[in-house]
């Protein structure tokens, strides 16, 4: 495509705005775009329409506990129920930066413990819960390299917390739990980025039946596993 050829560019502009243009066409279109303000405006205008299309998807109530699970994943104290929210809420603690690097699991367990406490608690003055019941196991690759940690918080609310180290291959990981009966229970999928990943989910089986966890990584490879003693 010649730099000055806006006519050719116009054939590709919709696909570029929708981010579905690939290969040499994309390279040529981007090269032209670098030098043509008029076509930049054209792409921006169509991209705005594409963005607005996504807003047509209907809103749906997220599953029960979603907000609390996110709060746990952020390593924050649990949210108060809207009906019981106080006007003034004292600061509990600050956090800054990715928390899953140093003490990641401890933070996650602490947050989940608070969450369990909040879900079940009836008292109005939060007290630090205890985490004596939390079970922790190291995730290791098939060759024994540490890959992260997995934990199950104490009763009565059992949460599964998975922390994958930043050196893992980025992509989607599927989690399977091993049971004492030899079953492999698919539990969910989560994405690991270049800076690692963290995932929180309800434990779908009784803790007494849990013997281990397995992570299947991008491309269906066995990424890591953990064994609970």
């Amino acid at each position: 495509m010649r730099d000055t050829d806006c006519t050719l560019f116009r054939e590709l502009v919709a696909e570029l705005a929708l981010s579905i243009l690939t290969g040499p066409d994309r390279s040529a279109a981007l090269a032209h775009l670098d030098r043509c303000a008029r076509c930049q405006a054209e792409v921006a205008s169509l991209a705005e329409s594409a963005d607005r299309l996504l807003g047509l998807a209907p809103a749906r109530d997220a599953p029960d506990g979603f907000e609390s699970r996110m709060t746990a994943a952020f390593g924050l104290p649990p949210p108060e129920p809207a009906a019981e929210r106080r006007r003034v809420r004292p600061a509990r603690r600050d956090f800054a930066g990715p928390w899953w690097r140093p003490g990641a699991l401890a933070a996650a367990v602490a947050a989940a413990g608070l969450l369990c406490f909040w879900l079940n608690g009836t008292i109005t003055t939060p007290q630090p819960p205890t985490y004596d019941g939390a079970v922790v196991a190291a995730l290791r690759t098939p060759v024994g390299v540490p890959a992260g940690e997995v934990a199950v918080t104490g009763a009565p609310q059992r949460w599964l917390i998975m922390v994958v180290n930043p050196n893992a291959a980025p992509g989607w990981y599927h989690c399977y739990l091993r049971t004492s009966g030899g079953q492999q229970i698919p539990t969910g999928a989560f994405r690991v980025g270049s800076d690692g990943g963290v995932w929180v989910s309800r434990l779908p089986i009784p803790e007494s039946k849990l013997t281990g966890a397995r992570l299947v990584g991008p491309g269906g490879t066995q990424a890591a596993s953990a064994t609970f003693s």
Partner: peptide, 28 residues
């Protein structure tokens, strides 16, 4: 959350996977 989960559900048609995607969206 309702918008993000709704979009994920619409695209995937699978509530569990939609929740995983919504969770990862907020983490990102």
């Amino acid at each position: 959350q309702a918008r993000v989960y709704g979009l994920a559900w619409t695209l995937l048609g699978d509530p569990d996977l939609a929740e995983d995607v919504a969770q990862e969206t907020f983490l990102r």
